[in-house]
Every structure is written in C-alpha cells, then in structure tokens.
C-alpha cells in the first residue's frame, strides 16, 4: 500500500481558557490518501475546525499543539520553520473557510488577491499572473471571469465569493484541500453547485479533500470515508456507506436520527439531549456518557479506547462489547 497523503496522529491541541487548559482536540488520528475525500463531522465545539486549522498550524499562538504529529507526504509539519510552513500553506495544502465573503479582503479585487497568492508561490510576470488568475476563476466555474477578476468581494454573491476563495486555495496547485464548512453560509441550491464543483475538481486533478462539516447529508454526498468527532476525539471512523448503513457509536446513531426525514411526522425532532461538555471540564470516563441512552455501568468508570470492529471501521465505545452488536436501526439509514 502506498503512503497516505496526510497522516494525523494522536493530535492534541490545547487552549488556555478561564476554566483552565482546554484540550479542544484530544488525540485525533486519521489518514487521507491522495484523491480521497474524508468527511470530519461533529456538532459545534467538538473540535473539527480546530483540527483543520491545526494541520496548517493556524491555531497558534492562541492555542498550542501539545501532542501527536501531522505528516504530509511523510514529512512532519510540526517542526517546520515559518518559511518552510509558508511553502506548504497554499502550495501543498489549500484551505477554504466557512464565511466566503469575510474570508476575502474587502479592499482588493478578486484578481489582486489571486495574483498575491500566485506571486507568493511561483515566479511569474504580471501578465502571466493575470492570465493564470483568470484561468483559475474559469476553473471554479465563475461566470465571466475576465470581468469578475476586477470585482471587489462585496460586489459578488456568497456563492461566487466561495468560488473565488476556492480559486485562491487552488492557486498554488495543492494536492490537499481543507474545506472548513464550505457550504454552511450558502443557500441550498448554491451548496449543491459547490458540491458538484468539488467533486469535479477531485475527479479531474486527483485532489484530496478534508471536508469539515456538521451536515451529514452533505458528507454523505461527497465523502469516501467519515470520521465522527465528539468532544475532541474521533468516536467512529468508517467508509461513508457503512456509517449510514451500520452506525455503531450511540452518538453517530443519534446524529443520524437527528437528520429530519422528509417522511417523518411533522413537528417531531429527534434531538440528542444535552450539550457537548466544555473542553476544559471533560470527564475522565466516556465523554458522551451523560447524553448516551445506551450507557452501561462501565461507561462511568473507563474511557473507551478507539478500536477496530470491522474492516476500516473503528469505534470508541464500550456498549457494543455486548455480545449482540447493535445493527443499524430504523431511522438510522440515510
């Protein structure tokens, strides 16, 4: 087997808060192969955005990576000098953010911003940069790229801004794209267009994508594999089809049940009771214990360890130690 493109290994990120040190990411491990799309899913505050930022070391200096490793093409990113890190950011790994309008500089035109990135990563003349900028805008299917290159972000819609942000992320021709909630701020129809675009780009160029989202529906449509994150840890990790057909972790099942089905009784929502524990006040036992409907005595004494329960399927839960493993149940499927 070839080496994975990205390896995140027992990553730990700590922030100092009023309540004390908070491990927003606490031992997250996953791998991403070239051309693969991995969905990183969880509620707000579960650590998915921090994980994404920690890969490019964007959590510093507010937070610190205190354990584990991030390797890209076998090389650890944690020991890089600032200059080496800049050569990875944008050139090896691109990133798009949740709020497309706010993540573009309001005083520069889209073309200016693209040329900035192109000049940072390639040696090229002004004319070449201009041509390349328009090519990139065309590649992200921005209508009328010649004209839009001269537009300011506030003159474009949210969907168009996200395409420009995507063009910026792709300007350095990275092999990996980190997309942090790329469609959350967009209309449903625009979301669908952007998803198609991501799939096209992945198919055309073999781009690997780390897709961060709280939207299981979106992840189901795009990702090859899914990692479910809860309170800074991966609680379930499996191929997408398996997550939806045979979810094992009670939290994953809860998330799937919480998806409103079109044929469900109106007014009935299957919310998971409670909230994610504060990362500065995590219990020493299972972190989902307080919200889990299937908890057993062991859950209150012992932290579950992530272990393989099938091919490419990991779960961190005590419950299915039960001799009769729980299969996917009604309402659990997509």
């Amino acid at each position: 087997m070839t080496r994975p493109l990205l390896e995140v290994d027992a990553l730990q990120v700590r922030f100092m808060t009023e309540l004390g040190p908070a491990h927003a990411v606490d031992g997250v491990s996953f791998q991403l192969d070239a051309g693969e799309i991995l969905g990183l899913v969880g509620e707000s505050g579960c650590g998915k955005s921090v994980t994404a930022r920690a890969i490019l070391r964007l959590v510093e200096p507010a937070g610190a990576i205190v354990g584990g490793d991030v390797r890209f093409e076998g090389r650890s990113l944690l020991g890089l000098t600032p200059a080496e890190l800049r050569a990875v950011r944008g050139k090896q790994i691109g990133m798009v953010f949740q709020d497309p309008v706010a993540s573009l500089n309001p005083v520069l035109t889209c073309g200016d911003q693209l040329r900035e990135v192109l000049k940072a990563h390639h040696t090229c003349t002004a004319a070449e940069a201009q041509e390349r900028a328009i090519q990139l805008l065309r590649r992200v299917r921005l209508p009328d790229p010649e004209r839009q290159a001269g537009s300011y972000p506030h003159q474009l819609s949210g969907g168009m801004c996200q395409r420009v942000a995507l063009a910026l992320a792709l300007a350095g021709e990275p092999r990996l794209l980190i997309a942090d909630e790329p469609t959350t701020a967009l209309d449903v129809t625009v979301q669908a267009q952007l998803c198609e675009l991501l799939l096209e780009l992945q198919a055309e160029t073999g781009l690997a994508i780390l897709l961060i989202s709280h939207d299981l529906g979106l992840v189901a449509g795009l990702a090859h594999r899914v990692a479910i994150l809860y309170a800074g840890r991966i609680v379930e990790y499996a191929p997408t089809a398996r997550i939806f057909s045979a979810p094992q972790h009670p939290y994953t099942r809860g998330l799937l049940r919480a998806l409103p089905a079109i044929d469900a009784e109106p007014g009935v929502f299957a919310a998971i009771p409670g909230t994610v524990p504060h990362p500065a006040a995590l219990p020493a036992y299972c972190r989902f214990h307080a919200r889990c409907a299937e908890r057993i005595a062991r859950c209150e004494h012992e932290d579950p360890v992530r272990r393989a329960i099938g091919p490419e399927h990991d779960v961190a839960c005590h419950v299915d130690l039960d001799p009769a493993p729980v299969a996917g149940r009604p309402g659990g499927g997509p």
């Binding site: 964007l58 050139k91 706010a102 900035e116 910026l168 350095g172």
Partner: peptide, 15 residues
C-alpha cells in the same frame, strides 16, 4: 477571517 485566510494561503507576514 481574511487575514487568517491569507496566512492559510502561505503569504509572507510583511506582505
């Protein structure tokens, strides 16, 4: 956010 995005794109700090 746009300054964070600029850092994520690998632009030099003085730039």
């Amino acid at each position: 956010p746009y300054v964070e995005a600029a850092h994520a794109l690998g632009l030099p700090p003085w730039r």
